[in-house]
Amino acid sequence: NITNLCPFDEVFNATRFASVYAWNRKRISNCVADYSVLYNFAPFFAFKCYGVSPTKLNDLCFTNVYADSFVIRGNEVSQIAPGQTGNIADYNYKLPDDFTGCVIAWNSNKLDSKVGGNYNYLYRLFRKSNLKPFERDISTEIYQAGNKPCNGVAGFNCYFPLRSYGFRPTYGVGHQPYRVVVLSFELLHAPATVCGPKKST
Rank of each mutant, 00 (worst) to 15 (best):
I2G: 14
I2A: 14
T3V: 10
T3P: 11
F8A: 03
E10Q: 12
V11F: 07
V11M: 07
F12T: 04
N13F: 08
N13T: 08
A14T: 08
T15W: 05
T15E: 13
T15Y: 07
T15V: 09
R16S: 14
F17Q: 04
F17A: 05
A18M: 07
V20M: 01
Y21A: 06
A22I: 07
N24I: 07
R25D: 00
R27E: 11
R27N: 11
R27Y: 11
R27T: 13
I28V: 08
S29W: 08
S29T: 14
C31D: 07
A33V: 13
A33Y: 15
A33R: 08
Y35Q: 08
Y35M: 13
Y35W: 15
Y35P: 08
Y35V: 12
S36V: 06
S36E: 11
L38Q: 04
L38D: 02
Y39G: 12
Y39I: 11
Y39R: 15
Y39P: 08
Y39T: 14
A42Q: 14
P43W: 07
P43K: 10
F44G: 14
F44N: 15
F44D: 13
F45W: 15
F45K: 15
A46E: 14
A46S: 15
F47Y: 09
F47G: 07
K48M: 06
K48V: 07
K48E: 09
C49V: 02
C49S: 03
C49W: 11
Y50A: 01
Y50R: 04
G51S: 08
G51W: 04
V52S: 05
S53N: 15
P54D: 09
P54G: 09
K56G: 12
K56C: 07
K56L: 11
K56V: 09
N58E: 12
N58S: 12
D59P: 06
D59E: 15
D59Y: 10
D59C: 07
L60N: 08
L60H: 10
L60W: 07
L60C: 08
C61E: 12
C61H: 11
T63S: 13
T63Y: 10
V65W: 05
V65S: 06
Y66F: 12
Y66L: 09
A67W: 07
A67I: 11
A67L: 13
A67P: 00
D68H: 05
D68R: 03
S69R: 05
S69G: 03
S69E: 02
S69A: 07
F70I: 01
F70E: 00
F70L: 03
F70M: 05
V71A: 05
I72A: 05
R73L: 04
R73E: 07
G74I: 01
G74W: 02
N75C: 07
N75D: 15
V77P: 01
S78Y: 10
Q79P: 01
Q79A: 06
I80S: 01
I80H: 01
A81C: 05
P82M: 03
P82R: 04
G83M: 10
G83Y: 10
G83N: 11
Q84I: 08
Q84E: 09
T85M: 08
T85Y: 07
T85C: 08
T85E: 08
N87W: 15
A89G: 05
A89L: 02
A89T: 00
D90T: 08
D90L: 09
Y91P: 01
Y93N: 01
Y93W: 01
L95C: 05
L95A: 02
P96E: 04
P96C: 05
P96I: 02
D97Q: 13
D98A: 10
D98E: 10
F99I: 04
F99S: 01
F99T: 01
T100L: 14
G101L: 02
G101T: 01
G101F: 01
C102F: 04
V103T: 05
I104S: 04
I104K: 02
W106D: 00
W106I: 09
N107H: 04
N109I: 06
L111E: 13
L111Y: 12
L111N: 11
L111M: 14
D112N: 02
S113Y: 01
K114G: 06
K114H: 11
K114Y: 11
K114E: 11
V115R: 11
V115Y: 11
V115T: 11
G116I: 07
G117V: 03
N118I: 04
N118H: 06
Y119G: 08
Y119L: 06
Y119E: 07
Y119T: 08
Y119S: 09
Y119C: 05
N120M: 12
Y121N: 08
Y121A: 07
Y121D: 00
Y121V: 08
L122H: 06
L122A: 11
L122I: 14
Y123R: 04
R124M: 00
R124Q: 00
L125N: 05
L125C: 11
K128Y: 10
K128N: 11
K128M: 10
S129E: 14
K132R: 13
K132V: 10
P133M: 05
F134Q: 09
F134T: 08
E135M: 08
E135I: 05
D137E: 05
D137R: 03
D137G: 02
D137P: 03
I138M: 13
T140K: 13
T140V: 10
T140F: 10
E141H: 12
Y143N: 02
Q144W: 05
A145D: 00
K148T: 13
K148L: 12
P149I: 08
P149K: 10
C150T: 01
C150Y: 02
C150V: 01
N151W: 10
N151F: 10
G152Q: 11
G152V: 06
V153W: 09
A154Q: 14
A154I: 09
G155Y: 04
G155E: 06
F156Q: 06
F156I: 09
N157W: 03
C158S: 02
C158I: 02
C158P: 02
Y159K: 00
Y159G: 00
F160I: 12
P161M: 03
P161N: 04
P161C: 03
R163T: 15
S164C: 05
S164P: 13
Y165C: 00
Y165H: 04
Y165F: 08
Y165D: 02
F167M: 00
F167L: 00
R168H: 05
R168N: 02
P169Q: 05
T170Q: 07
Y171H: 01
G172Y: 01
G172Q: 00
G172A: 00
V173A: 12
G174A: 10
G174M: 11
H175K: 00
H175N: 05
H175S: 04
Q176G: 02
Q176D: 00
P177M: 02
Y178P: 00
R179C: 00
R179W: 00
R179M: 00
V180N: 01
V180M: 09
V181K: 01
V181Y: 04
V181N: 02
S184Q: 10
F185K: 04
F185A: 04
E186V: 08
E186N: 14
E186D: 14
L187W: 14
L188K: 15
A190R: 13
A190G: 15
P191Q: 14
V194F: 11
V194H: 12
C195T: 12
G196D: 12
G196H: 11
P197C: 15
K198T: 14
K199L: 12
S200F: 14
T201V: 15
T201Y: 15
T201E: 13
T201P: 14
